[in-house]
Design a binder for these strands. Sequence first.
DNA 1: TTAAAAATATGATAATTATCAGTAAAATAC
DNA 2: GTATTTTACTGATAATTATCATATTTTTAA
Lengths: 229, 229
Amino acid sequence: MESRCENCIIRQFNSLRAMSKDELKKVSDSKTSKTIKKGEPIFEEGDKLNGVYCVRDGVSKLSKLSANGKDQIVKLATKGEVLGQRSVISEESTNLSAVAIDDMEVCFIPKESINNTLQKNPNFTLEVLRHMAHDLKEADDVIVNISQKTVKQRMAEAFLYLKNNFGEDEDGFLALTLTREDISNVVGTATESAIRIISEFKKKGLIHASGKKIGIKDERKLLEMAEGF
Amino acid sequence: MESRCENCIIRQFNSLRAMSKDELKKVSDSKTSKTIKKGEPIFEEGDKLNGVYCVRDGVSKLSKLSANGKDQIVKLATKGEVLGQRSVISEESTNLSAVAIDDMEVCFIPKESINNTLQKNPNFTLEVLRHMAHDLKEADDVIVNISQKTVKQRMAEAFLYLKNNFGEDEDGFLALTLTREDISNVVGTATESAIRIISEFKKKGLIHASGKKIGIKDERKLLEMAEGF
DNA sequence: TTAAAAATATGATAATTATCAGTAAAATAC
DNA sequence: GTATTTTACTGATAATTATCATATTTTTAA
């Protein structure tokens, strides 16, 4: 038996919280739950999406393939985020791929439920709008960072971002473990360059690592590095 | 005597077209027209905006200052675009500065008019949402371009962008004339690098220039260059 | 109109970053 | 548990891009 949206806590973190009980009931009736294994795609660049995906558990990377075959990760989406919204709203195929970094649990909500509510419930639309405004602001920041900061600065920033957004485990490692390649795709650099900088950060005592797991050792210095000192 | 929004053609190009006659009337009553001279700011990063600016004429650069003192131009906004929307919607201070590149004419619309309509007219909200979805998609593209393409490729792309979005004058020059510094801030590179690449493009016959004015000579090759051939 | 300031241009050089090559370690499949 | 594949790492080198210096041209202001 599947759980109902009405009782889902995740909803509190996204725009679905602005839905009425009745609307939520309809969404819940039309939704389907899916399990996505680590490494598997939820959708791919160019797909026409028939709905949105509400992330219940796990983390997904949203990325775009460039001409030279490298992926640029534009966002890491976790619990509570709704994927595919933009595509459904503008009725275009997605410009991003979503791939599971962890094992994930997502709910697929058909676009009809969303569009219906968008047209009838201004509160919901406004809530979606607020979220998108936030995403756009973040995107602007990413643009400025990528174009104005060095790879080293962006690497430092990435680790801080990972700590602030996904936390640490009991051993003090970043809770979200990314491959070196994924890190390089977040930062927008060559994998070897990312690895080199990780080595350097380790030597300088800014971070420590055990296999793939990376922990932040000197947050203050890392922050200074990100700011350019 | 000022012109009325109801009769303004510009409106057809932005989300204001989804407003009812009545709403439009209220907007028109509350709006004020402003003339902004070339080089003057409309608003600056960190400002709390009390409304949005609808561009009637001229072009504005939306930019963000980085720690090292360089401006990154995130968007060039022209006739029909509404500036400051994101800030008003999320009720935060803006993350961008808007400076006039041309002499401009803009209408200032107090946020109350906008917020009112956002809460009452789902069509308007949806229209704003669609625009923002579009902007977000564009921002993603910019991120991927900046991080995956070389400066040369991005320069080529910038000229094509300028042609496609602002057209050419009767002499075949790009209608929007930017300083070399502005070009470098759009592309995200050092001014000297931008100048050097302009010289190179001239030598290769991709563009021609007369003072600040730049014209596209071989669009096909420029496109190939942007794609990485 | 002339002086001053700003923008454009170019060379020399340094710094950053990517690429290629190859080894070591880890994860996965059998 | 071993073989195979993938991922991580390091060095050498090349390519890209930024920075500094300086000259020239253009624009602006007095």
